Amino acid sequence: MGRSSDAPVLGGPCVRGPGDGDRGRARLSGPVKRIDVIVAVRDEEASLPAFLARMDALDLPPGVELSLRFVEDSSRDGTRPLLRRLARERPDVGYWMLESGFGQGLALSFGLARSTADAAIVLDVDGSHPPEAIPELVRGYLDGARVVQCVRRSLSGRPAWRGLGALAFHTMVRIVTGVDLRSQNVYYRLMDRSVIDSFLKVPRYWRYVRFPLPTGPGAVRFVPVDTHERSLGASKYGPLRLLGLSVDGILTAMETRRLVFNTGIAALAVGALFAAGAWPLALAGVVAAAAVVVRFVGLRRPAALARMRVAESAGTGEAM
Rank of each mutant, 00 (worst) to 15 (best):
Val37Trp: 03
Glu136Phe: 10
Arg295Tyr: 05
Leu106Ala: 07
Glu45Ile: 12
Tyr141Arg: 06
Thr177Cys: 14
Ala267Asn: 12
Leu268Pro: 00
Ala234Ile: 10
Leu123Thr: 03
Phe199Lys: 04
Arg221Trp: 00
Leu281Ala: 15
Tyr237His: 06
Leu164Asn: 14
Thr256Leu: 14
Ala290Met: 06
Ala269Tyr: 10
Ala160Met: 13
Arg88Ala: 14
Phe70Val: 04
Gly315Cys: 00
Ala278Glu: 15
Asp143Tyr: 06
Arg152Tyr: 02
Ala253Val: 07
Arg301Met: 10
Ala284Glu: 09
Pro135Gly: 06
Gly264Asp: 08
Ser74Ala: 15
Pro49Arg: 07
Ala282Asp: 07
Pro214Lys: 08
Leu167Pro: 00
Gln149Phe: 09
Asp143His: 11
Ala289Glu: 08
Val223Ser: 01
Tyr95Leu: 02
Cys14Glu: 01
Ser47Leu: 07
Gly315Met: 03
Ile250Asp: 02
Leu268Phe: 12
Ser67Arg: 07
Asp36Met: 05
Ala7His: 06
Trp96Asp: 04
Val209Ile: 12
Met320Asp: 11
Val39Met: 02
Ser29Val: 15
Gly63Pro: 04
Asp118Gln: 10
Asp126Gly: 08
Glu312Ala: 11
Arg307Tyr: 04
Ala314Gly: 07
Ser75Arg: 10
Glu99Trp: 01
Leu299Met: 15
Val223Tyr: 01
Arg189Glu: 04
Ala87Gly: 01
Ser128Gly: 12
Arg230Trp: 00
Ala278Lys: 13
Leu142Trp: 04
Ala282Thr: 08
Val225Asn: 03
Ser156Trp: 06
Met172Asn: 12
Arg257Asn: 10
Phe51Thr: 03
Asp124Ile: 00
Asp197Arg: 15
Asp126Val: 04
Leu305Asp: 03
Ile175Gly: 08
Gly94Asp: 02
Leu181Gly: 13
Gly317Glu: 11
Leu243Met: 12
Ala7Phe: 05
Val310Thr: 12
Pro280Thr: 06
Ala304Glu: 11
Pro31Cys: 03
Gly216Trp: 04
Ala304Arg: 14
Tyr187Ile: 15
Arg80Leu: 15
Lys201Glu: 14
Gly12Asp: 10
Leu259Trp: 15
His129Met: 09
Thr227Pro: 00
Asp43Trp: 09
Tyr208Leu: 06
Val292Asn: 02
Gly63Ala: 08
Ser67Glu: 07
Val122Thr: 14
Arg307Val: 00
Thr252Val: 05
Pro31Ile: 02
Ser231Asn: 00
Asn185Ile: 07
Gly21Leu: 10
Gly140Tyr: 05
Met308Lys: 05
Thr316Cys: 09
Ser154Met: 10
Leu106Glu: 03
Ala306Glu: 15
Ala275Tyr: 02
Met172Gln: 15
Arg307Ala: 10
Tyr187Leu: 12
Asp36His: 02
Pro62Val: 01
Glu312Leu: 11
Ala278Asp: 15
Met308Leu: 13
Leu137Ser: 03
Asp124Leu: 02
Leu190Arg: 01
Ala168Val: 12
Arg146Cys: 06
Val39Ile: 09
Ile196Ala: 07
